[in-house]
Computed example of a mutant assay.
Amino acid sequence: MRGSTFSEHVSTYFNSVLETFTDYYPTSANSILPQISSAFAAQELQLSEKLNTIYACVALVLVVLYLFKQLLHLDQMGEAPLVHMKEGDDEVEVDTVEAGDDVDCDVRTATSRVLDIKRIMDKCSIFKSAYKPTWFWGKSGHIQTVLFGVMQKPHKAAADMSECKQYSVTLPSDGSVVYFHVYEPLKPHESEKLRIKQSILPGEEVTLLLCPGIFGSYNKSYVQSTVGAACSRGYRIVCLNHLGVLEDVQLKTPRLFTYGNTEEYAAMCEKAFGMFPDSLFISIGYSMGGNQVCKYLGEQPERQKKFVTALSICQGYDCIRASVGMTRWDKMQAVYSYILTQRWISLVEKHPLIMQTAVERGINWKDVKAARGLGQFDRLFSALVLGV
């Protein structure tokens, strides 16, 4: 029953009672009825206000619960991964290839590596099972970000203790100068301690080559956490600073970092190989940096021989789907797109060479500053600056 209907019923009943009282006690009614009517009107107003408050509270709770569900991704279910490989012109899904299948000689070589992967997956059932994250925080990157801010402090403290030096390398393509930082380990690696204990083969140096995410550099919190955790366990860190990101460094050429260009990371890796010739190397990329690491290793497969392994952390796998997803509001993706766009705009404004290039190419900076998403910014600015 709605609040207005309930009030009308109460008012009708009260009026009938007052009429009966007036018929039987006319003298008393004239003296006390005004007071009763005034009191009832006040109570009726309070009742209406309370009901409105209750309705407003219920509506607010429902809205909060909906946002809570959306932000924490509580409605998402885990899915089993689909693994596939592409060799030459042949693409074969792992789930469709069996070790005992009859395979034509022309494609046997192309599918041999796929079969090798399938044998590994058969022994590791986790690769075929759906990933089911922890109910509360495991599904939400928002909650994970907050928790990370609390849990990273001990690692950042360790990073402050490590010796850090800045180096640079010049890109042969256009003379751009790329800066990177090197953190030395705080103690010997486990293999070195094992060598001392057992007096066997020399211990190994292990160097992690980091590629941060968008707008990333050595001083980002997640990088510092990695530095602290790794250096305290005997690893050396070499961290790329994306072009144009460092606050105290101006660009030497009109070139900012881009989402998929691997030239800067490749130049840093080659420099590191020369600086630490006796070290083992592990490649690590975060988010956009994960894309660049995978692209770097896949562009020239012989590069993979330099690394023990590689890690891609929180990488976006499908650029087309991601670009569309960043325009949606159901999981607040558009908010992140807007924030990143404003970061791009402020970054460009810090570098006169980039601004001058924009002027020379006839880019309307007023329109660029009005961009509300990454897609708009890339169309109005990045693509025109790069000439694509």
Rank of each mutant, 00 (worst) to 15 (best):
R2I: 14
S16A: 15
T20N: 10
S31Y: 14
L33C: 09
A41W: 05
E49T: 13
K50W: 10
T53E: 15
V61D: 08
V63C: 12
V64F: 13
L67C: 11
F68E: 05
Q70D: 07
Q76P: 04
A80R: 06
D89Q: 11
A99G: 11
D101Y: 04
D102R: 13
V103H: 01
D106T: 10
V114K: 04
L115T: 14
K118L: 00
C124N: 13
K128V: 06
A130G: 04
W137I: 13
G138I: 04
T145H: 14
T145E: 09
L147D: 08
L147K: 10
P154D: 00
S168K: 13
V177D: 05
P185Y: 00
I196F: 08
P202Q: 03
V206Y: 00
L210K: 06
S232F: 05
G234F: 01
G234A: 01
L246R: 08
D248P: 01
P254Q: 07
E264Y: 06
A266C: 11
M268W: 03
G274C: 11
D278N: 15
G289T: 03
F307K: 05
F307H: 04
Q315K: 10
G316T: 12
Y317P: 06
S323W: 04
D330P: 02
D330R: 14
W344F: 08
L353Q: 06
I363E: 00
I363P: 01
W365I: 08
W365T: 04
K366V: 11
L384I: 11
